[in-house]
Design a binder for these strands. Structure first.
Lengths: 236, 236
DNA sequence: ACGACCAGATCGTAGAACAATCCTTCCCGG
DNA sequence: CCGGGAAGGATTGTTCTACGATCTGGTCGT
């Protein structure tokens, strides 16, 4: 069920290059940043076991520091800590997917609900995300489309004006990316929502938050059903 | 602005007694559990600095383990980690209070919104919390009333059926307790909502989720305004 | 009074060491 | 041939020590 991490030369060198980034802030947090990025990039796929010894050596840090970073990422839900067995990149269940969509529905729709006027700044960010998604789709970069779509939903969460809502949604989207990483065809995953997202954005830009929320609800219905259908890993 | 932690004898012995609890599970997490409980009990008041050395000695653990526990609690928002200065029990600003109520509003109201039928189990838990609050109020134990009220709101969050919603709200309520701990009069804080909470519960028990949600909205309006008025710490 | 400097305390990180646990392998009896 | 169980190695959990980095508070000189 879980694969073992093997330190191949190519990204062993890459992690060694990451050591250059270790020059600002707390080491443990910077290590967490690096690992988080590598995970979302798909370098460490879900189910992979992250060996303390290999990573410690590759990053050139002490075990204590690395373990602190592990704790941070485990708390974010990206890593799973199994006592005396090590940490693994989280492998989500279909129940997790349902749960992720349940709370996203509440938070993102809630962000739109209590909205009298649409803040210009956040709306602009949402528009920029839409643009980025469409240009990425034009060049067939479906990974980038997925990233842009998540940026769009982050912008929706930001509309709430609540720092905690924004950060919670950020974490949820990061978890969701773990699912995307194990689905075979990213195009099938992200392309169907380009038009709908733009329509949603137009409603927002027109100030019709009510209609936008309803469109968002429909998006969640579709996306959840489709993702569940496409997601059939060993851990089911 | 921040007070220094002084290891007085009475709870120095208390922490030494906590060492007995360190016999199951991962040490770091158990340490985090203990510290979390002590914080919510008010033993470590907001603004208190938690010295690595004192706690390490009192709990009889190593610095590394203690630091792992610190990371966990800092990520939960109960502790604040300042680089090269140490960890402090979080002292929330009025902006934090507003933010806490903003996201609670979205989550708890969202839990009621998408509710076709009210699950019997969660409703029973809400009812039990109401009972506990009223008996605690009868004997004048306003701290217990506050705890019961939070239990009530946790039950509301549980109605969502989402593990992540439940856990997020749990964390938010834990943060909110940090505010209660520094407000002088706990009675003034919790008594006004006893009747309203029961009314809300009756609506739930009657299956009228829509009306319950509206009542909850009004509760948040009142509670936020009153808490902001009562909360005027140095850090404002 | 004000700013520079110095010493003590505390944190940040590294590294070694050992115990506890898990995993693999091999052996043995059925 | 198969299953149970013991031995061994590998990895994690935790402690301890050490030292550089940073902050704090006080002193000194101007």
């Amino acid at each position: 069920m879980f694969y073992d991490l093997v330190v191949t030369e190519e990204w062993g060198a890459r992690l060694a290059g990451d050591r250059a980034l270790l020059d600002r802030g707390s080491t443990a947090e910077r290590v967490a940043d690096i690992l988080r990025q590598r995970i979302t990039e798909g370098v460490f796929l879900p189910g992979t076991r992250l060996s303390e010894e290999s990573l410690r050596e590759a990053l050139g840090i002490s075990r204590n520091t690395l373990r602190e970073a592990f704790r941070l990422l485990a708390h974010e839900g990206l890593l799973e800590h199994q006592l005396n067995r090590g940490v693994f990149v989280r492998l989500l269940s279909t129940a997790d997917i349902r749960d992720l969509y349940a709370i996203r529905r509440i938070l993102e729709c809630g962000a739109l609900r209590n909205l009298s006027t649409v803040p210009a700044e956040a709306a602009a960010e949402a528009g920029a995300a839409i643009e980025a998604a469409e240009t990425a789709a034009a060049r067939g970069d479906w990974g980038a489309v997925g990233t842009a779509n998540m940026r769009f939903h982050q912008a929706i969460a930001d509309l709430s004006g609540s720092r905690r809502v924004a950060e919670t949604v950020r974490g949820l989207l990061a978890e969701l990316r773990l699912v995307f990483l194990v689905v075979a065809d990213p195009r099938q995953l992200h392309e169907p929502y380009l038009a709908g997202n733009r329509a949603l954005y137009e409603l927002l830009a027109a100030g019709d938050a009510r209609a936008a929320e309803e469109a968002l609800q429909r998006y969640f219905d579709d996306a959840e059903a489709q993702l569940l259908a496409a997601y059939a890993p060993a851990a089911g």
